[in-house]
Write a protein that binds this DNA or RNA. Structure first.
Lengths: 223, 223
DNA sequence: CGCGATCTTCACATTCTCGTCACCAGCGGC
DNA sequence: GCCGCTGGTGACGAGAATGTGAAGATCGCG
């Protein structure tokens, strides 16, 4: 939210370049109205302090009172930069303060940093389950299932299959699979043996594990 | 961390006024050494970019590589304030950038704002009793029960089991368990011995504590 | 300083895994 | 069909990972 049209547009452009989806508002009221209609709160709010109607500080206060928005990251940028302003604004519940004039790149970097942190929290159990067809690899439990039933793999077999499923659709070279197994100086053919054993243990799901002649192996969803 | 003695002291004083407990270092190496000896990571790190020996950027890189510290808030303050510096620093994993010269009150306000957010996350699931099957771990009282009756564990055994139960269902590496115990310069096999002892003390509930060959240990509800 | 509790290391047994090899099968080119 | 090359596979010995008992090493405490 920012009352100067040019600045608002500029910021928007820079954010889009980071494949973010900014929604811009010229006034606090417009923003709050929009917000009340959203199902999920936005990932982050950029706020100018000097706004017509409701001031930025009032917006922060209003947001922080509502439990739905009390965890939403707020970045404040403003030309009002006396020490008191900064302290007060942060005290109200803003997360970061950037002084105007700021460089767009800086703003974007700060936004990305804040989102990274928020993401880390939200998706704490991040991505640790990979699937390919009826195959699932749980990298937290180190468990592989094929068609629902667990498959008992040795550590090396697990590491090979996990890498292949994580990269499903792309051929992985024996060299890289060797590295995944452990920094050994073994002959590349070791992988062949492991793959054979994996196939036996997978049973029907083995048809997802393909050989790419003279290149390596790959896992594919279909067929 | 800040190489100018006066500034370091000044910042420390201001932080203490907020009933925080700052620990100051004049060099990156001193800080990292101290950090490796701490059981729990500090709540927040204030970092100057221009340091002798290891630069602030190197410190950030080093910290973010370790999972124990990848969530630790980092505030960077520096006179190196070109746009590129700010963007790079935030990109490395810092959370906030403050330009020198900064007002101490601003720094403190920013620190408090960051801590508020980190606190909200940490204490959000203020859960202190974890269970897995007939096992319960009360992290407030430091008491473990198996099938209702209390189990008498040594401190190290408790820490290991607590971590495993908190993360039930996921494999925890010996390395991470070692870190939980506190000693980092011990042989990883120490964990094996502790686990053996824990198993004996758990009796029937020991069947919940599994070995994941070549990966670590894990606790699972079922089976 | 002595004592007990706890931690760490070590040694050994056991079980499981890995890498290698030899040989066979499949494929494509001719 | 023949040949050369690449991949599949069964078997085996070397070595790794783990469980565990016992012997120092440390620590905290009276």
């Amino acid at each position: 939210m920012e009352d100067d049209d040019d600045i608002r547009e500029l910021i928007g452009l820079y954010l889009q370049r980071e494949s973010l989806e900014p929604v811009a508002f010229a006034s606090s009221v417009a923003f709050l109205t929009w917000l009340s209609k959203q199902k999920d709160p936005p990932d982050l709010v950029i706020l100018d302090l000097m706004l017509p109607e409701l001031s930025g500080a009032d917006v922060i206060k209003a947001l922080r009172k509502q439990s739905a928005y009390d965890a939403m990251p707020i970045l404040v940028c403003s030309a009002k930069a006396t020490e008191t302003d900064v302290v007060l604004t942060l005290g109200l519940g803003a997360d970061t303060y950037i002084r105007k004039p700021f460089n767009p790149h800086e703003l974007v970097a700060q936004v990305v940093a804040m989102l990274r942190r928020a993401d880390a929290r939200r998706s704490a159990p991040s991505q640790h389950v990979f699937t390919a067809g009826q195959l699932t690899v749980d990298t937290a439990r180190h468990v592989v299932t094929a068609g629902g039933s667990p498959v008992d793999l040795t550590p090396s077999e697990y590491r090979i299959l996990a890498l292949l499923v994580e990269r499903k659709g792309t051929v992985v070279s024996r060299e890289e699979l060797l590295r995944a197994v452990g920094e050994t100086d073994a002959v590349e053919r070791v992988i062949d043996v492991h793959v054979t054993n994996i196939r036996h243990k997978l049973g029907a799901a083995a048809r997802l594990l393909h050989t790419s002649r003279s290149f390596g192996y790959y896992v594919d969803e279909d067929q």
